[in-house]
Computed example of a mutant assay.
Amino acid sequence: MPQEPGPDTNTGAMRLIFEYEGDAVRLISQQPVDMALTGAETPLESRNGHFAVIRDTAEREIARVPVSALQSTLEVFPETAGEPILRITPDTPRGAFTVIVPAATAAASVALLSVSTPAPEREVEPGLPPAPIEPTETVLGVFSLEPQGDSQ
């Protein structure tokens, strides 16, 4: 359903910077940015991956932006040229990432979600459509946003 112009209308974009260690994620910075935003989904889709979901004060989703930076493995570069680059899984993954989201005036919070669709439990009989499988959304964290208004 298309959104009506009003308090949810986008006023630009925000850069959100997160840090994570293991399962703990925290929002460390929120900055308005003057740039075109691509990748935000409206209407909101549920598909596999990680997402930053912008919500208003009533917990309605305003936008859903893919996040590709949450990694559970690391690339380890060799000390000697020509040796292979290794991918390892650390005991406690840690890092930081940035995501650009719409700066809607009604944005009150951002939720980081991990969305996955389980594999079908059984094979589909020939000639029958597969039963719909609902994606599972795991909330990694919910963070309050600073009010957005005129930035001048």
Rank of each mutant, 00 (worst) to 15 (best):
Q3N: 12
P5G: 07
G6M: 05
P7F: 11
D8I: 14
N10S: 14
M14G: 02
M14W: 12
F18W: 03
F18L: 04
E19I: 13
E19Y: 09
Y20P: 03
E21S: 14
E21N: 07
E21Y: 04
D23F: 06
V25L: 15
R26H: 11
R26Q: 11
L27I: 04
L27K: 08
I28T: 12
Q31I: 07
V33M: 08
D34M: 12
M35Y: 03
A36S: 06
A36Y: 01
G39A: 01
A40K: 04
E41Q: 14
T42C: 02
P43H: 12
P43Q: 12
E45K: 15
E45S: 14
S46T: 07
S46D: 11
S46Q: 08
N48P: 04
A52N: 01
I54V: 14
I54E: 04
D56I: 07
E61L: 12
I62H: 03
V67G: 00
S68M: 06
Q71G: 06
T73W: 04
T73Q: 13
V76I: 08
F77T: 11
P78Y: 07
E79N: 15
A81Y: 15
A81T: 10
G82I: 07
G82S: 02
P84T: 04
P84V: 02
I85W: 01
I88W: 01
P90R: 05
D91G: 02
T92I: 11
T92Q: 05
T92A: 05
F97T: 06
F97V: 06
V101L: 03
P102Q: 02
A104H: 10
A106H: 10
S109D: 04
A111R: 09
V115W: 00
T117V: 13
P118W: 09
P118C: 07
A119W: 05
P120L: 11
P120D: 11
R122K: 13
V124W: 10
V124R: 13
G127M: 14
P130K: 15
A131T: 15
A131V: 15
I133H: 05
I133F: 07
I133E: 03
E134M: 11
T138Q: 04
V142Y: 00
F143R: 07
L145I: 06
P147Q: 03
